[in-house]
Amino acid sequence: MAGMANPVVELRAVRKAFVAPGGEIVPVLDIDTFALEAGEQCALEGQSGSGKSTLLNVIAGIMRPDSGNVFVGGQDIARFDEASRDRVRADTLGLVFQQFNLLPGFTALENVLVAMSFGSVRPDRTRAADLLGAVGLGHRLDHKPAELSIGQQQRVAVARALANRPRAVLADEPTASIDTRHQQQVIDLLRDSCRTEGAALLVVTHDPGVAGQFPRQVRLEDFNRAARAAASPARPA
């Protein structure tokens, strides 16, 4: 697209609908275009239920859109079968969620190593340890998640998202379950780490204070027709 030199993620005419329990079809995504440039840092806001998580799942290849193109690293994963989308996700994307991020039976180091197991590069213990050192957990490598604070767990998650040198990191409300004092640390960590690693960053957040720090801020309702329709006050009589 004009003006977009080198997008890591690019959506075109993406539609996604769910079938509600009652049987009616509920459109969740109807997006003309959306792109994330290489190295770009972007905050994504939107009402609860507006489709932010669905959008991230579609970009990550966890969900397949009903129609449209989803370019990740130049490949249209909307055309790929699931296993191929899994491979693209392992190699080009890092994911951070709100909670239940880490594998409870695995140490901090192993959590990072597991992420390296599914990509096309060999697991690298040294890099895993370095990443944990960079997020300030060099002394907690062999701790299980239960032995770490929530903030420390989220830092392991950040290190893990960067394990395979991703082109972009997708974070779904990464600070929602952390107390305010540590929220800022996690955001700083995400932004600094992504900058260091040269990865683009897309962060879903409810917090205007968090969103305000990002050079680019978007509201899902502004480019998702399905969310606009759902949010409109017009109701059938």
């Binding site: 296993a83 899994d86 491979r87 996700r89 392992a90 594998l103 599914f118 990509g119 395979n164």
Partner: peptide, 16 residues
């Protein structure tokens, strides 16, 4: 199930 979901999010295939 939760562990499986996390591993899948990290790029694990169903076959994995």
């Amino acid at each position: 199930s939760r562990d499986v979901a996390i591993m899948r999010a990290l790029g694990a295939r169903r076959s994995h």
